[in-house]
Each structure stands twice: as C-alpha cells, then as structure tokens.
Design a protein around this nucleic acid. Structure first.
Length: 416
DNA sequence: TCTGGGGTCCTAGGACCC
DNA sequence: TCTGGGGTCCTAGGACCC
C-alpha cells in the first residue's frame, strides 16, 4: 500500500525522566525513575499537584493531576522533586534536534511529543521499524531518557501506537492492525475522548474503541454534533491531517495565568496580579511579532467557580499599558466581589505587526511602544526580573508571573 | 480530591443587518 | 408588531489535549 509513513515520538514520563537524567548528570546516584517518585509543585503556594510520576509510583495508584497529599497518603515514602522547566525545555529541544535529522517534515506537538513524516524516505534511512529503533536508541544513548515510538500511515494511529505499551518501546499500528491492537482498548484511551465524552458513551453502552468504531455514526452525530463524527473516524483509524511544521505564525493566542498563593479580595492586589500577568503576555506577543485584537481575563474563585470576560478591540495592539488598561476594565466588569484564587490574561486574534508603522500613531503611543521595546531588550539581555515595577515592592505579589527568559531558548551546545 | 498552566476548537444565544 | 429567514459578528462557557 502506497500510504504515508508517520512516526509519533513521545518521551516517557517526560518531566520525571528529564529531572532524573539531569540529576544523574549532576552526579546524583539515585535514579528517581527506579523508585516511587513524582514531580510536583509546592502545596504551600497552592500549586500542589502531581505533574509527572515514575513507573514504580504507578503501582500505588498515583495519578497525574492529583494532589500531593493524596499521593502521599497512597505512598508515604514517595520522593517528590520540584519541576525544573528550564531543563525540560532543553531536553525537549535536544530531542527535536535529533528527530529533525530523520525528516524535514516534523511537527512539535507538545513539549514531549513530536510527529515525523518520513514518507518515501526508505532509501535514505531504511525500513520504518528500523528507523524507529534507531531514533529511540539514539535519544536514549545521547540524551539519557527513553521514548516510545508509534508508526503508522497517519498521525492519529501513530499517536495511538506510541501510547500502547511503555516505556522504551516501538509499536506499529497500521490500519490492518487496528482491530487487534486498538479496538479492545477502553474508549477513554482514544484521542479526544475525555471524561465527559466517555461517560456519555458509556450510557449508550459504548465501552471500547471497537464499540465506537462499529456504532452508527448518524446516532453519534445526533448525540455529539460534528464531534460525533470526529471520534467515530478516529475509532476507525481515519485521519488525513498533515504533519506540518509548527512555527510562531501558527500561534492563535498567548495567555498567562496563575494560582495566587493567597486569596485576593480587593482590587488593588488584583490589579497587581493582572499587571504581572500582562507584562509577560505582552512581551511574548511582541516577541512573536504579532498584534492582538482580542483581550480576555479569566477568574477562578476560591470556591472554584470559573468565569471569564473578553473584549474585541477596534484596533490591534501589542502595548503592555494598552492591554493592561483593557484587562483592568474586564476585571471590573466581571469580578463578583468574591475571593479570587486564580487569574489569567489571554490575547488572541493575532495579526502580523509587519505593517504596523509607529508614524500612524500619536506621539504618546509611540513613546509607550519605544518604552516596551527598551524594557524587552533589557529583560532579554539580562533576565526577566531585571526591571520590575515599583508597585510590587513589599506587596507579596510577584512583579512578573510566568516563565519567559533567555533560558527558554538555549543554544544547542548547552544541552544538559 | 483542598484541586496547575499552557493551549485549541466548538456551540449557543443575542445583536444587528438586509 | 399577534413579526420571516438568513447571514455575520460577538461573548461566554465548556469540551478536549499535553
């Protein structure tokens, strides 16, 4: 069959493996992959959830996303390590650099996943299964962590394949293998079938991916609208999406949100948090060479009620102070005077800034733009915290919230 | 369950227009 | 207004992914 050859590469327990590899490199003798361990945030600042788990900790029933206290009650001897995002970015970049050598058509799907289109490349690298083992072994040898590789004729099946048995495995999942390898799996294992959809499917007695594949697609469409057809196609291994190079032009929106270490119950403190979030959003927006036409604020109350408010702009902007001004208005319009646990700022409806001429604008706006540029320059050259606003001094609120620094883009030579 | 943060896409309902 | 139908734009919310 003259189909495509698609690989999906997935780092095993990425954050945990990457922290483990970095620790071994620094001379530690214990490999946290071999003991019950997790990567987790700090409960004191209300970030206490499991971000990644080792294979031995899975035996205790520990789940990604559960609270640290819950995880500790399942396994009192659990080793907890903090997340080290700069290391994760380096490991991810290093993995992608190796994978790029196998095909110019590569798509970074997330920090720990990548698709490769190696169609018609057998003469160059060999049979798909051999290429998959070669990639896997190179990453293990050169970078010190393991990956799973899925092989198929489309992205969906390649991704489902890499998810089969872990860790350090290669699986093919061609359409002719689907019935045997994918259909017996619980329907919740299918890409895009989350908790809510799974519950609805259980109600119509669809329990496995095979059940879904063989269900009447018209009934699914009635129940789930267009989404019904999507998951039915996935269950049947149907997917014709392209492996496409992801780049910053494709970015649809830029957001930054944080759970505040304490509940905020007044505008003054809320504004400070919103400003610290906006600083990063606007800086990333400018760095992407885009302007935004939509600004949104999201709020989570201390009782976990979520709501948001957005505004479409009649103009496009990348100015920190313009965006912050709108953010404050949106907060005022939406805040229900209750205690706030989490806040977020997001910009979207991006457009290129290439025709954005400062001469179109009044002197005041021009002055603000040039101030933004100057501050971005200093923050990039030194570090994000090199310049902060004086209102944050002694406030207990961070002047800058969100990961963004030169560390996000390390040179290849600085890997581990 | 004392429960993070980055995203994308879809849908429903209302305003407004012809 | 005892009031049609189709289209677009906007907002809020909810589903999913990692």
């Amino acid at each position: 069959m003259g189909g495509k050859t698609i690989f999906h590469i997935d780092a095993n327990s990425a954050f945990l493996s990457w922290s483990a590899a970095a620790r071994l490199y620094k001379g530690e003798t214990i490999d946290i992959r071999d003991i019950p361990s997790i990567v987790g945030g700090d409960p004191k600042s209300r970030h206490g959830i499991v971000l990644a788990k080792s294979i031995p900790s899975k035996k205790y029933g520990i789940q990604t996303g559960e609270t640290l206290s819950s995880a500790l009650s399942k396994c009192p001897t659990l080793t907890i390590v903090p997340p080290e995002y700069d290391i994760y970015v380096r490991c991810s970049n290093a993995m992608v650099e190796i994978l790029k050598e196998y095909s110019p058509k590569h798509q970074r799907y997330s920090i720990d996943e990548c698709f490769l289109d190696c169609t018609n490349m057998e003469n160059l690298h060999g049979k798909p299964i051999e290429v998959a083992y070669a990639m896997k072994e190179r990453i293990k040898k050169e970078l010190g962590f393991t990956v799973n590789v899925g092989i198929s004729s489309n992205k969906l099946l390649a991704k489902m394949g890499s998810d089969l048995k872990k860790p350090d495995m290669v699986h093919s999942l061609y359409p002719e293998e689907m019935e045997e390898k994918m259909w017996p799996l619980p329907v919740g294992d299918l890409f895009m079938v989350g908790r809510k959809t799974m519950l609805k499917l259980y109600r119509i007695n669809v329990k496995t991916i095979g059940d879904l594949a063989n269900y009447n697609v018209n009934i699914l469409k009635d129940l789930f609208k267009s989404f019904g057809e999507v998951i039915w196609k996935f269950a049947n291994g149907i997917d014709d999406s392209e492996v496409r190079k992801s780049n910053f032009i494709d970015v649809k929106g830029i957001g930054n949100s944080t759970t505040i270490p304490f509940d905020v119950d007044n505008k003054r403190e809320a504004y400070m948090v919103l400003l610290s979030l906006t600083e990063i959003v606007a800086m990333r927006l400018r760095d992407s060479e885009n302007l935004c036409r939509l600004v949104a604020v999201s709020i989570r109350s201390n009782e976990f009620a979520n709501y948001s408010r957005q505004r479409k702009l009649s103009f496009a902007t990348d100015s920190t102070s313009v965006i912050y001004g709108i953010v404050k208005e949106l907060f005022n319009e939406s805040w229900k005077e209750e205690k706030v646990r989490q806040m977020g700022v997001r910009v979207s409806e991006l457009c290129s800034n290439e025709f954005y001429q400062t001469s179109f604008f009044q002197a005041d706006e021009e002055r603000l733009r040039s101030l933004d540029k100057t501050i971005d320059g200093i923050r990039l050259k030194y570090e994000t915290g090199a310049i902060t606003r004086s209102v944050f001094v002694n406030s207990g609120i961070k002047a800058i919230t969100g990961g963004y620094s030169v560390e996000d883009y390390p040179p290849m030579s600085s890997i581990l």
